[in-house]
Design a protein around this nucleic acid. Sequence first.
DNA 1: GCCGTTTTCGGCCCGACTGTTTTCAGTCG
Length: 570
Amino acid sequence: MKNHEVAELLNKIADLLEIRGELIFKIRAYRKAALVIDGLSEDISEINKEGKLDDIPGVGEGLSKKIKEFLETGHLKYFEKLKKETPVDIESLGDVEGLGPKTILKLYRKLGVKDLRGLEKVAKQGKIQKIAGLGPTVEQNILKGIDFAKSSSKRHLLGTSLLVAESIKEKLKRLKEVKKVEIAGSLRRRKETIGDVDILVSGKNHGKVMDFFTKLGGIDRVLAKGHTKSTIQMQDGLQIDLRVIDDTKFGSGLLYFTGSKQHNIVLRKIAIRKGMKLSEYGVFDKKTGKVLASKTEADCYKKLGLVYIEPEIREEEGEIEAAMKGKLPKLIGYDDIKGDLQMHTKWSDGSNTIMEMALAAKKLGHEYICITDHTGKLKIANALDEKRILKQGKEIDKANKNLKGFRVLHGVEVNITADGKLDMKDKVLKELDLVVAAIHSGLKNTREKATQRMIKATENEHVDIIAHPTGRLINKRAGYELDFDRVFEAAKRTGTLLEINSFPDRLDLNDVHARAAIKAGCKLVISTDAHHIDHLGFIKFGIATARRAWAEKKDIANTKSLKGFLKSLK
DNA sequence: GCCGTTTTCGGCCCGACTGTTTTCAGTCG
């Protein structure tokens, strides 16, 4: 699937156009198309073959020509030309938070900054603060931004790498030489970012499997190719390891390669204590060397005196102790969510209609959804004012009349202002089924200020849910700091639900914070923040995060049926 | 560069916040 690659190409073009001072609407057209394409479930190469590129919303004559050229030749002359004319590594520089095209251009013209290294050099030399319009604070922020960009650049998002891994898994499954295939490693544990992908295979004729693997589409280069292990690097930099193991040892192999390392170390210690030995080849009797278990993971755990532990919580964070005592949580299942509670439609910055979202959600097995378009001051997102909210309500009523066994709730995503108030009148909020509140401005607030804004928002009687509570964007932005103890206390006291946002670059709350919130007695919801029908499937990443947070069904409000859910609101 | 039940050209185009300034430019959503 080249969707992500195409989306990245369009975004890069947008970056280059921006630095050249092109018309903002043209730039936005590129970005909008990129967003839609990234979220498509259908393979864009297939769409191209059918000649239907301009059926994609946001893709017209110009873009479909460019995408076609890129898909069929592997490159795009227009992009090459832009790059040549703009000798700045805008990709890496743009990753620095707070650094936009104007500043990048200024730094290039005045100081010759072309890339991150150059930027760091002039920042450390104190040259940036001497440029008119910039100052010492900007320089400091740039240095901080560089540190962050550096530390987070090498890990890949769960959402994107899981799609790639699953598609490879499906292809391997179809080989007659392959008996079992599983994704292992941190990806199987559903960590929010992963270093590389591990795939485990059992079967015969290893050579043939490896041949197939090292000739997959989208490979940049083959780093290693052997009888039991091969490594490839994909064009987007993602590294994938394939290991072939004996079918009788698949369980112990999977256990070993799933990790985490810490989890495995503790398991091995337990084995030793019990006169056994654990390796990727099985659980053995230390004295006789006899294999005691190896076929399945559950067998191995059982021999060690433990019940099966779900991969998402194998982090040596108390799960082994809990397994010994039989006190493991019954994690929320991937089919347990009954309704998605944050999504956008054409009314604000989404790509689909209310009805389209409803039907897509119904198809996914949901029983209800809540439409939460932007309100108030976020005009760029075509935010709704009072009048349009009322008008939208009528369209939702109409949709509900036509939907059987499914309910569309009417909500909004309001902004929490600098003083913790909301940018929509209480009398409007009162009439809605659900109010989702979020911070979209003042991301550099101090910990105290951000905490106070958050607490005040939970205290508003109309606010049901706080969305993406920390505002972080994985690999891009750290988010504002919060005093979580106080925020969780306020959420619990006021009965405000906290969101786990399922968008692959958000996953906010993250696993650690979500677990702390549950411990503090808060109730959570899992929502997608979908801006397109294809984004509704992101819910699995939010559920994965909840599972990593040891969440049970009862901790997540939208596992309830509609009636129960509405009753649980304040 | 996209889009269209008023349209095939002209609209899309906000506002908070920050850090720089002393009235504003750049960034972000």
